[in-house]
Amino acid sequence: MQIHIQRAVEIASSPDMVHVTCQGVPIYIQHVDEKNEMCRVYPLDQPNNERDVHVSALEEHRG
């Protein structure tokens, strides 16, 4: 399910881990720039590999 900007904000501020991917890679949303609809993310297994992606590139997977 594609994520909208408000949902990205909710996920980023949530204390619970939410399964989100970017191009099939599980990621953590570190920060959300609501004005530009960009998210600062990193792969769960590579916390030093931060990058900015458009919110449309993110997918939420619900169990």
Rank of each mutant, 00 (worst) to 15 (best):
M1F: 13
M1R: 14
M1T: 09
Q2S: 15
I3D: 00
I3Q: 08
H4Y: 11
H4G: 03
I5T: 02
I5L: 01
R7F: 01
R7Q: 09
A8V: 05
V9C: 11
V9A: 04
V9W: 11
E10G: 02
E10C: 04
E10K: 14
E10F: 09
I11Q: 03
I11V: 03
I11M: 02
A12N: 12
A12W: 08
S13Q: 15
P15Y: 08
D16R: 05
D16S: 06
D16E: 12
D16W: 09
M17D: 13
M17A: 14
M17W: 14
V18M: 04
H19S: 12
V20N: 00
T21H: 10
T21R: 10
T21L: 03
C22L: 05
C22Y: 08
C22D: 05
Q23L: 02
Q23E: 08
G24H: 08
G24P: 10
V25L: 01
V25Y: 01
V25P: 00
V25M: 03
P26N: 06
P26H: 11
P26E: 10
P26S: 08
P26F: 06
I27P: 02
I27A: 01
Y28P: 02
I29W: 02
I29N: 02
H31A: 04
H31N: 09
H31C: 05
H31T: 06
H31M: 04
V32R: 00
V32D: 00
V32C: 00
V32F: 01
D33I: 03
D33Y: 12
D33L: 01
E34V: 14
K35R: 07
K35L: 11
K35S: 12
K35M: 10
N36G: 05
N36V: 03
N36Y: 14
E37S: 13
E37V: 01
E37D: 07
M38Q: 14
C39V: 10
R40T: 09
V41P: 00
Y42N: 08
P43H: 10
P43S: 07
L44D: 06
L44A: 05
L44I: 11
D45G: 07
Q46E: 06
P47N: 05
N48Q: 07
N48C: 04
N48V: 06
N48M: 06
N48D: 10
N49A: 14
N49E: 14
E50L: 12
E50Y: 08
E50V: 03
D52E: 15
D52P: 01
V53C: 07
V53T: 13
V53E: 06
V53Q: 08
H54Y: 10
V55R: 00
S56P: 11
S56F: 13
S56A: 15
A57D: 09
A57R: 13
A57T: 13
A57G: 10
L58E: 01
L58C: 01
E59I: 06
E59K: 05
E59Y: 03
E60H: 04
E60C: 09
H61Q: 11
H61M: 03
H61E: 10
R62W: 11
R62P: 00
